[in-house]
Nucleic acid binder design. Structure first.
Lengths: 129, 129
DNA sequence: GGCATCTACTTTACGATGCAAAGTTTGAGT
DNA sequence: ACTCAAACTTTGCATCGTAAAGTAGATGCC
């Protein structure tokens, strides 16, 4: 007999769409939601700490999913790609965020010491071992 | 010239350790932090909505990283694996959570409408297209 | 003019990895 | 003895993230 609180799928978080959950794309989408007017490729690259190739690929994936719109033009005779969230991308991202908030709530409740989270997050990160 | 707010790495979220960030393992760790006494393999499988093979593999990864402790014993003459967070796993998970909270804050601030998040998260999820 | 350099991307290639399906082992039921 | 089921583990494939290499055009320098 399962424990009473072990409800099927209680912690499955179906809403964590892989398309969005991936770290690099999460960075990109968060950057874009914070800059509704759009961001140029180089700015986005710097903000997210990504390489050119990386950003290019992730943007292609997000564009394929119609989460972002890429406006390719020229600025000062140089190619310039402006990236923007589409309404669809925005909606999906906000849904995803709702699930993330749920994760944080569940975990904080489980840990029972949200103060500990606040404390621990201010410190430096340990080296991966 | 980059926009003034495009600080290098502002949205790079280095703390999103892949080991933890992966959806299935995030489920597992959240379940475990919510059940400090540990969880049996089948309960964990149900909670996280994972298949046997999936859970087994992710647990092995988490054990390798020393984030979980697997106590393999018997209950009613049947094999029973009890899974628990190690102190190290707990600490790392809480650090990760801090970063997640930062993501949610950044995004909510960017979206400028946290009410919208709350509203949207209560609805059903759209079919992936 | 020619050559190197820089920016702004894109493409390629490979190694990692998530996931499902099949396999194993032990036990209970009939 | 035979079947079914639980509790995992192992295998294999196909996806995917990432680094490195490649492309194209503009600028600077001599």
């Amino acid at each position: 007999m399962p424990l009473p609180e072990t409800i099927d799928g209680r912690f499955s978080y179906e809403g964590l769409d892989r398309l969005i959950h991936e770290k690099a794309r999460l960075s990109v989408l968060t950057s874009l939601v914070a800059h509704p007017k759009g961001l140029a490729f180089p700015d986005l690259r710097r903000l997210c700490g990504l390489t050119d190739g990386n950003l290019s690929r992730h943007l292609a994936v997000l564009q394929e999913a119609e989460f972002v719109d890429l406006e390719k033009g020229y600025d000062q005779n140089r190619p310039q790609t402006i990236c923007r969230l589409t309404p669809k991308g925005r909606t999906r991202f906000l849904q995803y965020l709702g699930v993330l908030e749920q994760v944080v709530r569940d975990a904080a409740k489980g840990a029972g010491k949200s103060a500990e989270i606040a404390r621990v997050m201010t410190g430096p990160f340990p080296e991966p071992t």
